[in-house]
């Protein structure tokens, strides 16, 4: 009984975590139609940007958070969007290689400047202590993750369905040519989508930093999870991503509790492989953004 409770609680927690990780990736897939393999760099820039502002430049917590958001947007636009994505939109193999290269460069730079032993400590703990749900006690910070995941998803959904810009984004995600003919500034929408996509990782990293080990190689495993969740949910479909992230969260927590945490990656891959065999589109029903 205790095990089932733990599994369910951690399924929700892990699901929210994976949701925050994958939401941006799925948005880029849907709107731009590319794979941002440099997505791992986003996480690193968030954490290490914060650390750099606080440690090297001596900012306070709130100014540093603002600063990190600015750095993220600037980084995404000037390093990822303009030089690489715009140039190589049609030549996909060059696009993917360059994005991977960017991710690698960022990782090595971070590793050089702040190696693992530097002791990165980001004081963004909002809730301390542990929280009791039934017989399970989890760190309260993880509850913050769940809350933020819900908030950000709600924000995205409302933004995409109720605002005019969101409408334009959805149009571009379905058919950029037609949207262009109707007067939508497709390039602007792409840039906006890229900026929107870095919001969940930044929030995720800021909230999770106090309780996770921060090292320069975390980009890889996060990118891996994002890819698997997005594939399962159907590329570019936010509803599918939401459902898929909780399914993956459930798989991860059950495998971790009943067998071994190390087998989680393999279990997720096997499940995704089998889903792809029968439903090559992923579990989502439609090809649109929401």
């Amino acid at each position: 009984m205790h095990a089932i409770q733990s599994v369910l609680v951690y399924a929700v927690v892990l699901g929210s975590l994976y949701l925050l990780i994958s939401l941006g990736f799925s948005l880029i897939c849907g709107v731009l139609g590319i794979f941002n393999l440099g997505y791992g760099a986003t996480f690193l820039v968030a954490v290490y940007g914060m650390w750099m502002l606080m440690d090297t430049f001596g900012f306070g917590v709130i100014p540093a958070i603002v600063g990190v958001c600015v750095i993220q947007c600037v980084f995404t636009l000037t390093v990822i969007y303009y030089p690489i994505v715009k140039r190589y939109m049609e030549k996909e193999e060059l696009l993917l290689t360059s994005l991977l290269l960017v991710s690698l460069i960022v990782e090595e730079t971070v590793n050089h400047a702040y190696p693992v032993t530097a002791g990165v400590d980001i004081p963004t703990t909002i809730l301390t202590g542990t929280f009791e749900i039934g017989a399970v006690s989890i760190p309260s910070q993880l509850l913050v993750v769940v809350v933020f995941a819900a908030l950000i998803t709600a924000f995205f959904v409302i933004f995409l369905t109720k605002t005019r810009i969101g409408f334009k984004i959805r149009a571009v995600s379905q058919d950029p040519e037609a949207a262009r003919l109707l007067g939508v500034k497709v390039e602007g929408v792409y840039a906006l989508a890229m900026i929107l996509s870095v919001l969940p990782p930044t929030v995720c990293m800021l909230v999770i930093a106090p309780i996770w080990a921060i090292e320069p190689t975390l980009g890889h495993s996060l990118l891996q999870t994002a890819i698997l969740v997005t594939i399962l949910g159907g590329l570019g479909n936010l509803r599918g991503t939401v459902i898929a992230s909780f399914i993956v969260g459930l798989i991860a927590s059950s495998v971790a509790f009943f067998t071994n945490p190390r087998l989680v990656g393999m279990a997720i891959l096997i499940i995704v492989f089998f889903v792809l065999l029968f439903k090559p589109q992923g579990i989502a029903k439609s090809e649109t953004l929401w």
């Binding site: 594939i231 891959l269 792809l276």
Partner: peptide, 21 residues
């Protein structure tokens, strides 16, 4: 079976999973 993009993604992940194994 996999559409072009899925194939590239799954093959991207396979070695990483192997590493975990």
């Amino acid at each position: 079976i996999a559409k072009g993009l899925y194939f590239s993604l799954v093959t991207l992940i396979l070695p990483l999973i192997f590493l975990e194994v």
